[in-house]
C-alpha cells in the first residue's frame, strides 16, 4: 500500500513565462535541493527573459516552516538585484498566521490575494494597461 504514495517531489519546480512575468507555483513540501534549484532557475529565467516580475503562487502550500520563509525572502532579494519585483500570491490564512507566529514578516516582499492580482500588480496584463487594480469593480457595492 505504501508503495502507491508518490515519492516526495525532489525534481524541478517549473518556472513559467507569461509575458514579462514569471510564474512559479509551489505545492506541498519544498525540499532543500528543490529550493536551491528553484532559486537558480528563477535567476536565470529573469536574465534570459528580462522579466519585470516574479509571481510565486503559494496557494497550494499548507504547511510552512522558517525554511520556506527564508527561501521566499532570498528569491525576492535576488530578483530585486536583477531588477524584477517579486509578489507572493494566494497565501492561506493558516499559513499566514504561522508565518507571523514564527516572526517571518517578509518585509521586502509584495503580496497579493490571487495570482491574477499579482500579475496585474507587477505590470503584466498588457491587454488592459490602463486598468487599475480593482478598477473594474468601480461603483458596484
Amino acid at each position: 500500500m505504501t508503495r502507491d504514495f508518490p515519492p516526495p517531489v525532489t525534481g524541478h519546480v517549473p518556472v513559467l513565462r507569461l509575458g514579462d512575468v514569471l510564474l512559479v507555483t509551489l505545492q506541498g513540501d519544498l525540499h532543500d535541493s528543490t529550493a536551491e534549484q528553484l532559486q537558480q532557475d528563477i535567476g536565470e529565467a529573469i536574465t534570459r527573459n528580462r522579466a519585470a516580475g516574479v509571481v510565486i503562487d503559494v496557494s497550494g502550500v499548507e504547511i510552512v516552516d522558517s525554511f520556506l520563509g527564508r527561501v521566499l525572502a532570498e528569491i525576492a532579494a535576488k530578483a530585486r538585484l536583477l531588477a524584477a519585483e517579486t509578489v507572493v500570491a494566494g497565501m492561506r490564512p493558516a499559513v499566514a498566521i504561522t508565518m507571523v507566529e514564527l516572526g517571518l514578516f517578509l518585509p521586502g516582499l509584495r503580496t497579493a490575494l490571487s495570482t491574477e492580482d499579482a500579475i496585474r500588480l507587477v505590470g503584466g496584463g498588457d491587454a488592459h494597461p490602463a486598468a487599475r487594480p480593482g478598477g473594474t469593480r468601480q461603483g458596484s457595492p
Binding site: M91, R92, M99, L113, D117
Partner: peptide, 12 residues
C-alpha cells in the same frame, strides 16, 4: 500587529 502582518502576507 500580528493580524495586520498576516493580512499583509495574504495580499490584503
Amino acid at each position: 500587529m500580528k493580524t495586520v502582518a498576516a493580512a499583509r502576507l495574504m495580499g490584503a
